[in-house]
Simulated scan of single mutants.
Amino acid sequence: MTTMVDVARRAGVSVATVSHVLNDTRPVRPDTRAAVLGAIDELGYTHNTLARSLVTSRTHSIGLAVSAISNPYFTEILQGVEAGALEAGYSLLIADPHDDPEHERKVVQLLHERRVDGMIVAPSAEPAGMIEYLTRRDVRTVFLDRLVGDEHDQVCAENTGPVRQLVEHLADLGHTRIGLVAGLPGLSTTGERIQGYREGLRSRGLPFAPELLAGGNSEAEGAQDATRHLLAAPEPPTAVITANNAMTIGALRALRDRGLQVPRDIALACFDDFSWADLFSPRLTAIAQPSKDIGAAAVRLLLERLEQPDRPPRTLRLPCTFVHRTSCGCPDPGAADAQPSQALQERNRTP
């Protein structure tokens, strides 16, 4: 088994110099560093990270707690976190809190007991117990996707403006009855997207109708029930917005069960784009979140916090992108002779 002594001999330096190169504990001349790294590569030396952690009190690992890792949105966030951590020389320990406050608290404790240097957490709707645990133990933490207060480092996408944009787009197409399938109560994302919905109605002079706002609990089954509820209203919506990608699936199932075709019978737009959204027929008009960028930004914030533990907390909001496709009733941007659907033309002719 190759040791640091072997590396030092091959590179013609001291064992201490090899240690400084591996642990970044002291500046080393570029040519000396290159010689050490060359010897490491030639001999196939593997650094003992456990021994390093005993010396530096750091494990160079990050705990990541996000719910529904199978969700494409969180999968892309995970990719961003992983890329950022790998680039900085950190490994990841990943756990799923299942959006359950009690389980979330246990998951955070287990990650902490693995001696991670810091954590990145997508909090549940009731994160008080988890936050209290982290705060009392002074665990460096960045919250992502869902905000928990200005006293913490956190990163998320813009929510209010993009939903307002969806509402205004549908209103400009002639819709006056626009429904929203909202997310899990208590999440900052849910509140902000409802706010955007109401602002969009107000900006186009449309009244807020409580029967057109239904809660889908941020998951497909709940959204299916919520969409059925909207369709059962005395005056059902002519357009529906879903507030995340899982709920889009539930809404589509409910529309299919009613025999409704999008956008001929009802328009649909969604918050959260996903890689196969343009494979539907019609293709889904959506708000795309910068998921990978959110993950990478969370890593940067955490590393800054580890290096500057006393700096003021920061909240980063990243802009979203309006992806204009055809489920809203607009013509396909890729079709040269595209015309609005007949139903949409009739709707626009309605005084």
Score class of each variant (00 low, 15 high):
residue 78 L to F: 08
residue 246 A to V: 00
residue 278 D to A: 12
residue 204 R to G: 02
residue 6 D to W: 11
residue 60 H to K: 09
residue 324 H to S: 10
residue 338 A to S: 14
residue 197 Y to K: 00
residue 349 R to V: 02
residue 48 N to A: 07
residue 320 C to I: 06
residue 45 Y to Q: 07
residue 210 P to F: 01
residue 301 L to F: 14
residue 50 L to E: 07
residue 343 A to D: 05
residue 234 P to N: 07
residue 45 Y to E: 03
residue 220 A to Y: 00
residue 98 H to N: 08
residue 318 L to V: 10
residue 2 T to G: 05
residue 24 D to L: 12
residue 55 V to E: 07
residue 217 N to Q: 14
residue 117 D to S: 09
residue 310 D to F: 13
residue 252 L to M: 14
residue 84 G to W: 03
residue 26 R to K: 13
residue 299 V to G: 05
residue 343 A to H: 09
residue 20 H to M: 11
residue 80 G to I: 03
residue 308 Q to T: 15
residue 144 L to Q: 02
residue 29 R to M: 09
residue 36 V to R: 03
residue 214 A to H: 01
residue 247 M to N: 01
residue 49 T to D: 04
residue 308 Q to V: 12
residue 263 P to I: 05
residue 18 V to D: 00
residue 346 E to I: 05
residue 2 T to H: 05
residue 42 E to K: 06
residue 295 G to E: 09
residue 163 V to K: 02
residue 8 A to F: 12
residue 163 V to I: 15
residue 252 L to C: 09
residue 71 N to D: 13
residue 149 G to P: 02
residue 145 D to S: 07
residue 95 A to S: 13
residue 87 E to V: 15
residue 246 A to F: 00
residue 170 L to A: 11
residue 262 V to D: 00
residue 1 M to L: 06
residue 269 A to P: 00
residue 34 A to N: 11
residue 9 R to F: 08
residue 265 D to S: 10
residue 296 A to F: 02
residue 243 A to E: 02
residue 68 A to R: 14
residue 63 G to W: 09
residue 12 G to L: 01
residue 298 A to K: 02
residue 275 S to K: 05
residue 177 R to M: 07
residue 64 L to A: 15
residue 54 L to I: 11
residue 35 A to P: 00
residue 28 V to K: 06
residue 311 R to A: 15
residue 12 G to Y: 00
residue 316 L to H: 07
residue 38 G to S: 15
residue 258 R to P: 05
residue 44 G to R: 09
residue 248 T to R: 00
residue 11 A to D: 05
residue 272 D to P: 08
residue 33 R to A: 08
residue 53 S to T: 08
residue 8 A to C: 14
residue 105 R to H: 15
residue 17 T to D: 03
residue 241 I to A: 03
residue 314 R to F: 08
residue 182 A to K: 05
residue 50 L to M: 14
residue 126 E to S: 15
residue 9 R to E: 15
residue 162 P to D: 06
residue 282 P to K: 06
residue 56 T to H: 09
residue 191 G to E: 15
residue 308 Q to C: 12
residue 150 D to S: 14
residue 316 L to C: 06
residue 177 R to F: 10
residue 170 L to G: 03
residue 22 L to Q: 08
residue 307 E to N: 15
residue 166 L to N: 03
residue 134 L to Q: 07
residue 317 R to H: 14
residue 122 A to W: 00
residue 13 V to M: 06
residue 72 P to M: 02
residue 70 S to I: 07
residue 39 A to R: 06
residue 321 T to H: 12
residue 118 G to W: 12
residue 185 P to T: 08
residue 18 V to R: 02
residue 105 R to V: 10
residue 231 L to T: 02
residue 47 H to A: 13
residue 119 M to I: 12
residue 324 H to R: 14
residue 71 N to I: 05
residue 91 S to Y: 05
residue 75 T to V: 01
residue 22 L to D: 09
residue 263 P to K: 06
residue 19 S to G: 06
residue 16 A to K: 14
residue 242 T to E: 05
residue 293 D to A: 15
residue 44 G to F: 10
residue 159 N to T: 05
residue 256 R to G: 09
residue 86 L to K: 12
residue 175 H to F: 11
residue 79 Q to F: 03
residue 33 R to F: 03
residue 341 S to M: 08
residue 127 P to Q: 14
residue 157 A to C: 11
residue 304 E to C: 09
residue 170 L to F: 13
residue 68 A to Y: 08
